[in-house]
Amino acid sequence: MRIVFSSLSGHGHLYPLIPLARAARAHGHDVLFATGDPFRGTIEELGLRFAAVGVPIGAGFAAASGGSSTRPEPGSAEWLRLVSLVFGAELPRRYLADLRPVLAEFKPDLVVHEAGNHGAGLAAREAGIPGVCHGFGRQSPANYAGFDPALRSVAADAGIELPEGDLRTLGNPFLDIFPASLQPAEFLESVARFPLRPVPFAPSGALPPEAVAERSRPLVYLTLGTGFGDAAVLRSAVDGLAALEVDVLVAAGPSVQAGALGELPPNVSVHEWVPQAELLEHVDLVVHHGGSGTTLAALGAGLPQLFLPQGADQFGNAETITTAGGGEQLLGAEVTAESVRTAAAALLGDSPHRRVARRVAAEIAEMPSPERVAERLPDFAR
């Protein structure tokens, strides 16, 4: 069977699909991965076929905002309107156009599109190819008010019929990598959901020596991910964590240079990138932005989390895990060295938060593996 996997051009959208794509290939399926050209090397190193489609998410925001570099306040009405235009119109329109020739040439039997890439779902529907929606994290309780009208307008322009009701999955079966206990009940009731165990993926690499060294005190992992780095927030977190009897390992990401953090305390080390999937088994606490990938990886490892959300779906993830008792969150001006120190201290050791995290980890471990779900993919193509 021929299968196209397609994601938006972003780490948090691409990486969750890779375990199933690899499992599908291992089952003998002919797999092509269609995403942004910056990820060509990642995909081809895995031995998968690659097709460059779409534009960076930032380009979608630039187009929707008329080229303005000024972004509305996250959570504001103007911000929600902009997000609806980006993910409901600008990106779907481009991915639909770019995937048409890919599907025509490859002639897949199935298209697996991630939940942020509605353009790939539209392209499959237009070509008469069965589609499956692959989640990358928690679904918002409801779509942004302007999302459905924007997407329906793109579909109408292309002559594509869409199902009535909620368009979060385009009416396709939904492969859900988020534990059901943390998904909104109304979403679970509205889709044909198939659980899929989240398997953290990152390009291979060596762990920093300090991550695997013998130690007599906890190791705290601090990151703001790949897209929302902020040197001031990282510095406040570093100062707060360094005041504890812990070692701190920082992944600064591509948007913050290590030098921007200034002189570091002796119990802190900073790296541009670390193999997060391998690192977490050595960690006692994760302090991070709340991106879906890091949130799920920490949940799967049974680790408490301190959230410092900066944008996108991070606020929803932080609120969900905090409400469930698996962590704490600090928002905006609340992020100070003292508040980080206090919150982190409460999360270390055998805290109630750790017990909640371990319970969710057990739930995740019971979800079907990518290998088991790959066996079922032909059923979705019928």
Rank of each mutant, 00 (worst) to 15 (best):
R40I: 02
D379P: 04
F87V: 02
E73F: 15
G171N: 01
T169E: 01
Q183A: 14
P163N: 02
T226Q: 15
P19K: 11
G159N: 00
Y144P: 00
P208E: 03
P173H: 10
S216K: 15
L91I: 11
F201Y: 15
P208H: 12
L261S: 00
L244T: 04
E334M: 12
V31C: 05
P209H: 08
V111S: 14
P101Q: 07
F5T: 12
T226L: 12
I43C: 02
H282A: 05
F187H: 11
H289M: 03
F194H: 15
L347G: 13
A156F: 05
R152I: 02
Q314Y: 03
S7Q: 02
L244C: 05
T322F: 07
L162Y: 11
G227C: 12
E245M: 08
W273Q: 06
A52R: 06
F307D: 08
G131Y: 01
Q310L: 14
L14D: 03
V360E: 04
L91K: 04
Y95T: 06
V31G: 02
P173S: 11
R40A: 14
G66M: 08
E281N: 11
E366F: 07
V220D: 01
I177Q: 04
A26P: 02
A21M: 06
L308E: 10
L80N: 15
V335S: 08
E90Y: 04
A89C: 08
G229L: 02
G349D: 11
P141Y: 14
A202F: 09
D284Q: 07
R138N: 06
L241W: 07
A337D: 07
V220Q: 04
P370I: 12
P92T: 00
I57Y: 08
I321K: 04
A301I: 14
V111Q: 07
R2K: 15
T320L: 12
A374D: 00
P149C: 10
G119A: 10
D230I: 04
A156P: 02
A89F: 01
H353S: 13
G302A: 10
E189N: 04
A150G: 03
R168F: 15
Q310V: 14
R152V: 00
G205M: 12
H11D: 09
V111W: 09
L241C: 04
P16S: 08
H13L: 06
A297E: 11
L299A: 12
Y221I: 11
L91M: 04
G327D: 13
G325P: 13
E45P: 05
I43K: 01
L306K: 05
L46N: 13
P200Q: 14
R217V: 09
D350G: 04
I18C: 07
R49Y: 08
R168N: 09
F147Y: 15
L331P: 03
E161N: 01
E334A: 10
L46W: 07
R125D: 00
L285F: 11
M1F: 12
G128C: 12
P198R: 03
S204P: 14
S68N: 05
F187W: 01
P92G: 09
S69G: 05
G159D: 00
V283I: 15
G325M: 05
V270K: 13
D166E: 09
A120Y: 08
L299R: 12
D148H: 03
L103C: 11
P184H: 10
N267P: 02
R382N: 05
D166V: 13
A260Q: 15
G302V: 04
L196A: 13
V335M: 08
L264N: 10
E328T: 01
